[in-house]
Simulated assay, not measured.
Amino acid sequence: MTTNPDGVAVVEVGPRDGYQGIGPFIPTETKLSFLERLHAAGLTRIEIGSFVSASALPQMRDTPALLAACGRWPALRPQVLVPSERRGRDAAAAGAREIAYVLSVSESHNRNNVRRAPAESAAEYARLLAALPAGTFVRLNLATAFDCPFEGRIGEARVLALLESLVPMRPEAEICLCDTTGRADPAHVAALFAAAQARFPEARSWAFHAHDTYGLGLANVHAAYRGGVRVFDASFAGLGGCPFAPGATGNVATEDVAWMFARMGVPTGLDLDALIPVARDGAAIPGGLPGGRVRDALAAGPQACAAP
């Protein structure tokens, strides 16, 4: 993650969001190889997996082993996703020191995901915070903050009402608003972040998690950036899609985000030349559903811009 105050931080979520829906199990050593290459391309904060039921998401069953292996890269900040107090405690016991707790604004999505109402998940978040070791970095992911696959567009008031109960629990937590279905548009993104930042000035860090289902991932990232957001999730090769959000495709591609910000002169700390080969190999993972445009555009070479 870049420390330049004028730059942005890109959080690589491909090893979690990108892999979780892939059927054929990706060997642990293959996952570690991708982690090593992503880290070498400048990604220092990577969501390496999630602590979840192995029966529900078998691709994530080796997350504890991956977490243990991350010690070989001292500068890497491995982040893990947890959907409940129990899984958060499991992650902490396994040595996780960067935990992303996820709950949905939409009751339908939250119940489909973790069989709980959002208020119940909020209560679990409070108990987990009390149980975490001192110094644990906490991110709060609000899934379906813009749209729900079951309920449609989510009203701004519902998001703010849930944050009213969550933000005071740990104001220093990083708060990530997630476009779970990819149906958000730039105006919606800008308006929700503006409202949330105005309502909760005590919140120290805001992040945005974009999906590219309708091709608006980069536009939404840009809208959030213009609104003052400086932390962005992305997935190499555009891999991903939520198993509990039918029709959602992958996150906005890491290489696309890196290219856009480079063109804008905004530092990311990423080496695009090193990232593109990793993305090309990621797009070839059996069972994966890649997205993104930059790696193919760059592969076409200068002739892509030749005059007709």
Rank of each mutant, 00 (worst) to 15 (best):
N220H: 13
L270S: 09
C242A: 08
P168L: 13
G7H: 07
R77I: 12
V159K: 01
A161T: 14
M169A: 15
D273I: 02
L76V: 04
A253L: 13
E12S: 12
A9D: 10
G301M: 05
A196G: 11
A56S: 10
S235L: 12
H188P: 00
Y214E: 14
P58I: 05
R158C: 01
V102N: 00
T180P: 01
G250A: 09
P246N: 10
E120I: 11
A248S: 14
F34A: 08
V167E: 14
E98I: 04
L166D: 11
Y125K: 12
E47D: 08
L142H: 00
V257K: 05
A284W: 01
R72H: 03
P133L: 04
A126F: 04
L38Q: 03
L76S: 04
T30N: 08
G291P: 04
A306S: 06
L32W: 03
E120S: 13
A191S: 15
A96V: 04
R293A: 11
A91I: 09
D271N: 13
H188Q: 15
V167S: 10
I175C: 03
A274T: 07
R226P: 01
A190Q: 14
R280A: 08
A126N: 11
I276W: 06
P171W: 10
L103A: 08
V102G: 00
G301E: 09
D296Y: 15
R72K: 11
A157Q: 13
F208M: 02
A94W: 05
V159W: 05
L132N: 07
G95T: 06
A117Y: 01
I154N: 07
A245P: 04
A117P: 00
G135P: 12
T2F: 05
A131T: 06
R170Q: 10
L272D: 11
M60S: 05
L177H: 06
Q197V: 06
F232H: 08
E255F: 10
I48W: 06
P64R: 01
A297N: 07
L177P: 07
L81C: 04
P302H: 02
A198N: 12
A143E: 04
G21Y: 11
V221W: 03
L239W: 05
S33W: 09
Q79P: 00
G291F: 04
R86N: 09
N141E: 07
C176T: 07
V167H: 12
R127L: 15
L142W: 00
A223E: 11
A258S: 13
I46M: 09
E36L: 09
T181L: 02
L76P: 07
I26E: 03
F137Y: 03
E29C: 00
A75I: 00
V10M: 10
G291A: 01
E255D: 08
